[in-house]
Design a protein around this nucleic acid. Structure first.
Lengths: 229, 229
DNA sequence: CAGTTACGCTACGACCTGTAGCGAAAGGCT
DNA sequence: AGCCTTTCGCTACAGGTCGTAGCGTAACTG
């Protein structure tokens, strides 16, 4: 029934002519190029097909509509996000925030991200697709960073390991939300200065919570830490 | 030259038939109704005109396109946001966050807000329109709330009054960003529990910054304050 | 009253969507 | 090889939207 859903690898070893992998990459690349030049609203399926050197029908065989195509085209850009261990929670946060901000400054993501999220408010499958290919990819960074900080003793361990207390979700929404809002709504630069102030605010909040949970523990200072040259 | 720009009151006392005020309100109301039923992407100018009992050309005489129309239609909803003095910074924040979240849950704003912001990344006039009629209206709440907290002694006064140090902007992006991200991207409920945890985090961050600026000052506790029954 | 502007209506070209149908190409299976 | 299956490019198409032009009429100013 529902034959076309995505460019995700179809079952291999099935009869018939296989889908062209070159076409997939060409289409996604053309989609990003079209986003840069035209933006979300003026991007059309026909234009993408022409750019990719592919028939329009080929696009519709793989993606149901513009929304899903753009999600896939933009999702790969989020693979660049990494979380190298910089030795302190502060450095880790500042680094990942700057990385994320740089990603949001790119014209492809800038115009596409909010648009697909807006569409997803009335399209459950699209929301799920965004979650799986973009949101979860970011959230993983929060999980890693928090765990590292716990191992360093910068943050208290979960009271009930395994239980879902929503702390990760809260931190994630605060970080991603603040950066997105600053970059796309306020439309002001996410520069070193802002990132340091934001990180200090966040660390202060996490430190206060930690101090309350375990008074006397080594606190987190909101000011410039000893790890800043 | 550019004759049509908005439904905002044109110069009075000029010759000719004046614009119908009923038409304005009918159009904006029809736009919100269409947003509820159809969502952003399936909303059409022709449909709005029909609902409003108005000719399509009348819409184009007042708004250049769908984006600007929707911004004006949604902007008035943000007038509901208020900041009653609840006696403490914590209570003020929790109240305004819940209010804002309730606004974002409405189907009109849910589908429209992200969409117009997405469009604004490639449309400077639209961005300015959004800023003037929506963003600034929210930011004012932050300015009020912070000033009140300073008068109560909950937050330190600006080091250099009158100077722009960006603290208001930072707080604004953190609050608005986190709530929007939670509600529209993570698509999870902004309920009492989440709001309390978020507020505690924010107060902790603000308190840590205050403690650093003026050690020994009356700190802000991240835990449940004495003002919570 | 004349002058000016807004209104409703119709019609229109340009564009985009998403699908159907065709013959040809590219694989697996026996 | 031959058969089957699936994909591909191409063309054509109905349906819908956009944004504008042109017309006669309505409403208000001086």
């Amino acid at each position: 029934m529902c034959s076309r859903t995505s460019p995700r690898p179809r079952a291999t070893g099935r009869p018939g002519r296989p889908r062209s992998a070159e076409a997939d990459t060409a289409i996604l690349e053309a989609t990003r190029a079209a986003l840069v030049e035209l933006g979300w609203s003026k991007l059309t399926m026909g234009d993408v097909a022409t750019r990719a050197g592919v028939a329009k029908t080929t696009l519709y065989r793989r993606w149901a509509n513009k929304n899903e195509l753009v999600v896939d085209a933009v999702a790969v850009l989020f693979d660049e996000l990494e979380l190298p261990d910089l030795g302190s929670l502060r450095a880790d946060i500042e680094h990942v925030v700057l990385q994320f901000a740089a990603l949001l400054q790119r014209p492809e993501t800038k115009t596409a991200l909010m648009a697909v999220v807006a569409e997803s408010t009335r399209d459950e499958p699209l929301r799920e697709r965004i979650r799986a290919s973009i949101v979860d990819r970011q959230k993983r960074l929060v999980l890693e960073g928090r765990q590292r900080a716990q191992e360093r003793g910068e943050l208290p361990a979960d009271r009930d390991p395994g239980a879902i207390d929503g702390t990760d979700d809260l931190i994630f929404d605060v970080i991603a939300g603040a950066v997105v809002h600053r970059a796309l709504v306020s439309a002001e630069p996410v520069d070193q200065t802002w990132v340091q102030r934001f990180t200090a605010l966040l660390l202060g909040g996490l430190g206060a919570a930690a101090a309350q949970a375990a008074p006397g523990a080594q606190g987190l200072s909101a000011g410039p830490g000893p790890d800043r040259p």
